[in-house]
Structures are given as C-alpha cells and as structure tokens.
Design a protein around this nucleic acid. Sequence first.
DNA 1: TGACATTAGTACGACATCGCACTATATAGT
DNA 2: ACTATATAGTGCGATGTCGTACTAATGTCA
Lengths: 148, 148
Amino acid sequence: MRDEEAGLIFRFFNEVGIIEQLSRTMLEARLPHGFLASHFTVLNHLTRVKDGQTPLAMARAFQVPKTTLTHTLAGLEKAELIEMRANPADGRSKCVWLTEAGKAFRQDAISGLTSDMAGIAEQIGVERMADALPLLTDIRTYLDKARD
Amino acid sequence: MRDEEAGLIFRFFNEVGIIEQLSRTMLEARLPHGFLASHFTVLNHLTRVKDGQTPLAMARAFQVPKTTLTHTLAGLEKAELIEMRANPADGRSKCVWLTEAGKAFRQDAISGLTSDMAGIAEQIGVERMADALPLLTDIRTYLDKARD
DNA sequence: TGACATTAGTACGACATCGCACTATATAGT
DNA sequence: ACTATATAGTGCGATGTCGTACTAATGTCA
C-alpha cells in the first residue's frame, strides 16, 4: 500500500481521536460535578436501546473491559440513577434498570447540550454528518470484527 | 432544533468515541509492552510536523492538558526516544527533540501497522475516508474554537 | 526600573481505566 | 449425576489522565 494512503488513514484516526477528546470535554462541562461522559453514555444507552441489560452486554456495546463498566455502574448506583437487580434467567448475572432520577438526569444533560448541538448543526451542518455516519458505522463494525 | 437532528449528532459522536477506542487498542497492540498510543502520537507528531517543539505547543495540538503531556514526555525521555533541551528563546520553556532511537521506534510501529492499514483500506476504502476527512477537520476546528 | 500579571513547566493528589485473579454459577461431555 | 470448562461479576493493584497549586521566567505598563 502506498505511503500516501497510509498517511491518510493515520490522519483520519488522528482527527477522530481529537474530536473524541473535545466532544467528551464538551459533554462533561454540561454534567453535574463528579459525573463523567461514561456515566452519561450508560444512561443514554439504557434509554435509547433498552432497560434491564446485563453489564457484560453493555461492556460489549461500548467496547470497554467489563471491570471498567463495573466501576462506572457502581458510581451510577451510588447516585441512585440506576438499580442493579438479579437476572432471573441467569444466577451469575445482573440486570441494570434506570430509576426515575436516572431518566431525569439524562434529560437534564440533554437539555443543557442543546445550545452546543445547535452550534454544531449551524456551523457544520447536520446533513454532512448524516452523510458520513454510515462510513463511521462501517469502520466501527470492521474494527470490532478485526480485533480477534 | 429537532430531536431527530440532535439524535443524529449524538450517534455521530458516539461512533467517533467507539472508533477512537478500537483504533487505539489496535495501535497499542503493535507497540512494545509498556508503550501507549499517547507515546506514539508524540513521536509521530514530531516526525510529521517538526522536531524541537515546546511541550505546550504539542499539548495544544493534541488538545490534552499540559500535565498529561508532561507525564507522556517523561516516559519517552526515560526510554531515550526523545530529548528535552532548554529553549534558547525562552528560559521558561523547553524543546523536544527526537533521538535516533525515537525515529526508529516510530518506523517500527508503522511497519507493524501496515497489515492493519491494508485491511482497512481494502474493507472500507481509502477514498471514502479521504472524502470524510474535511468534515472531521471542520468539526475538530469548530469544537476547538467553541471551547472558550 | 519596579510592581503586577501572564505564561511554561512540574509536583502532587484524586480518580478513571484496565489487567489479573478470584468466586459463583452455568454449560458440556461422559 | 459428575467432572471439567466457560462465563458473569467483582476486588485489587498498577498506571494513565487531569485539576490544583506552585515555581521560575517573561511580558506589561506606569
């Protein structure tokens, strides 16, 4: 493969890394003190996808080690934004449920982000991002499969 | 702004976050034990852009706190992949220079990554990534300016 | 020039991430 | 049913990240 192509792929992932950092900082600025993007991500996932998932299923969805998720969930449970219940279908496992406070927490965070989102929509254009989304999904899917 | 648009922007940054995680893991699998993506990123930047930059300039380029970079540079210096010298133009500051070992380290890492890159190029297509790169750069630039 | 504000880098502490090892439960093979 | 293997979750330790506070050097403005 040509150096030019390799360099382009490098720059692509480089930009992705910086955007991840900046967008995470932007999100965390809208969260109450002591909460991180990882907490929001869990609440958002439980809302968007479904309640009652197991920690391991979520760890796979986020591509993080399960020990990392244990820690994140402990923080959310302590703040009473989620509840951990036994999994009736598997004694080893647990299910994670949102509390009312957890739902409200997520909604508040999203409300606080609307001005940020509006700025992005105006300056970048939602359509351009929508056009690029399938590419990102393809790359994510490929990288996920490639890691054996 | 419509919920649909906000949701799309959310999904965009969500994919970016997961890709960052997966690509970092892929890179770190190709580095000698004990070295992280942050180390490679510094060596790569010094090679691609220029030697002799100050730590602060690099922290800004990567959008990380300067304390984080201090730690990363300490690791690289201990491994003798970089040299820190006084900045003749500013007594408070230092300049970071690659050593021969540092240049070789980077080249080895890149060599190890070629098969990964080839897989991406084949499965995703370099052209699609090239087409999306300007969008990523625009988003990165906007987020950088928006954080005041 | 002198007083004050600003900036580069670092020491330190708090905490998030993550690998390893362990327990409890479930599954497979006989 | 019994044994061996695999899986879900967690405790613990190591280390990376980053905020705060500090020192040294520079810039500013009267």
